[in-house]
Design a protein around this nucleic acid. Sequence first.
DNA 1: TTGAAAGCGCTAACAA
DNA 2: TTGTTAGCGCTTTCAA
Lengths: 345, 345
Amino acid sequence: MAGIRDVARLAGVSQATASRALSGKGSVSARAREAVTAAASELGFVMSYHASSLASGRSHNIGVVLPFVNRWYFATLLEGANSALMDAGYDLTLYDFQGDRYRESVLGDFLLRKRLDGVLAVSLQLNAHETEQILAAGIPVVGVGGPLPDIPTLRIDDVEVGRRATNHLISLGHSRVAHLGGEHEYGRNFEISSGRRAGYEEAMAAAGLPLREAWSLISDYSANDAYKETKQLLADAEERPTAIFCASDEMAFGAMLAARDLGLRIPEELSVIGVDGHEMGEILGLTTIDQFPRNQGTRAVERLLALVQDDGQAAAGPADELMETRLLVRHSTSAPRIPAGHSGS
Amino acid sequence: MAGIRDVARLAGVSQATASRALSGKGSVSARAREAVTAAASELGFVMSYHASSLASGRSHNIGVVLPFVNRWYFATLLEGANSALMDAGYDLTLYDFQGDRYRESVLGDFLLRKRLDGVLAVSLQLNAHETEQILAAGIPVVGVGGPLPDIPTLRIDDVEVGRRATNHLISLGHSRVAHLGGEHEYGRNFEISSGRRAGYEEAMAAAGLPLREAWSLISDYSANDAYKETKQLLADAEERPTAIFCASDEMAFGAMLAARDLGLRIPEELSVIGVDGHEMGEILGLTTIDQFPRNQGTRAVERLLALVQDDGQAAAGPADELMETRLLVRHSTSAPRIPAGHSGS
DNA sequence: TTGAAAGCGCTAACAA
DNA sequence: TTGTTAGCGCTTTCAA
């Protein structure tokens, strides 16, 4: 329970010098620095971050806001953010909305408590009032997968992702391509889901291929829900597509299992492509568009810390940043080889 | 940026009364309370938690320490902890070891910074020095799945879990039962993995069944690693088991996929049972022992907050608490029905 | 490079 | 029930 005052006393310097020596800010003679560090370690001194934060206005604490910790994409991005924050000596305060359950209390209460140096907002959409409120609190914010107006954001080009995934299937010779995308829920993921869907529709149109309403499915991004939707879709042998583009790998897992349970072989009778880069895709042989979520988390923290440390003044780099994706071809996609007995229309 | 002093002034009371009115502690007349809350909302007052923490010694902030956010069990438990903490108005500071990568810095540095009212330690093992250090810091700790000597812990009976899973297979008529368990790494999960393994061995012995070294596998709890191990195990038709007990559902997923890729039907040619209660088990039809991780997280927080709020004095309930599990039978287990052409030894 | 001194914005005795 | 008065343990001007 030794305080900095005890350290200073033992080192034979003033409290101010001790503080400077320990924080590295301000100039301190080598001799004083040594005396202070020696005293500190002898006493087992650990600084009170409350006191430090109160006096300095910096808390070395970043809030991470996301809709679900329990989805692979978010958990993996969180891991990347965690690494970058640990390395920088920052604490990470987690705000998991759990859907919308805590959205309001986090946005209207927790985030405003001024104990954060900055906020990382993942897949979050804010209305005008919410944006204003949070910016008025003076907290630097960086978003991932926004869009958050007036807030620097990292994103992938979701339209491009949808187009590329769909074109991969089309270029293999598929003309009957379905899409399983996310919900159009307000306040979350909207642009992501609709971007990927727009890319799908664009690619289909560009190739002169028909869009059918029955081939455009919506699910909640979970494997289980995707399983149900896909099973329904594939049950009708006459009407079913030969390929499906899923907006996430977890959805693709569900789709693959549904196909297998219907006795359809992948990729012979159904090609499946996902988005994310989930490790489990390896053992399923899932073709996907990898978006390197871990890297997104790390990069977002770098951006945020730059903002925080420049005192919110200079934005480091362009306001918005497009992150890289990569088409990763495995065994779940191939040219359509529909066995005899199955007909297309 | 209004402070409590401004609120007090506008309400026409002293700062102390304003503080009491806002915190609900101490007695305040109805009239004063109204005046204060009115003034506070008029000014858009938000308390500085740094100042409050410094003055009161309570930070309303709980640290959660776990080895991987990206494993289903941990993410789900975290979700439960998050709910309980949000409901109680507490912040959650996340410390993700990412294996062992940040173990040392979290334990030796971050946790000691005295900004936490308590710590929830999940699947963590501490050596004597570490335990002493953390207890010396005066932070209340509750563990899940310890064991942490001198620290109240919630756990399931892992030996019982292993025994029950194995006995389920044995009672179906299996005599060739393999086990895919976790690593024996120091500092993490050790007791959990070895407990489940011990239960398996106990059940086999009690039934007079042979243990084979080749049937006792170790993996890192991931589906991918489990896939590799299982594929190896099952490749030899002469030597392979008819059932496998996996120490987690994610492992079981890997095992099921490996079996399918070898053309083995589940459950006819291989029965699989897991542990956890992963939702995705539904679509795979995985039989499992559900351990309700979400509930574990919630319950652990309740215990911890009781400790914190009782000022570390009275432990609420017994020091250690055994959590419930449930055998959930689906379609991945049945009596062995080995097709002709395959032989047992 | 150093020290003295004044807070940071709140809470908690204590006395009234 | 209320107000006065000290702090909580640091950081940071400012002057030396």
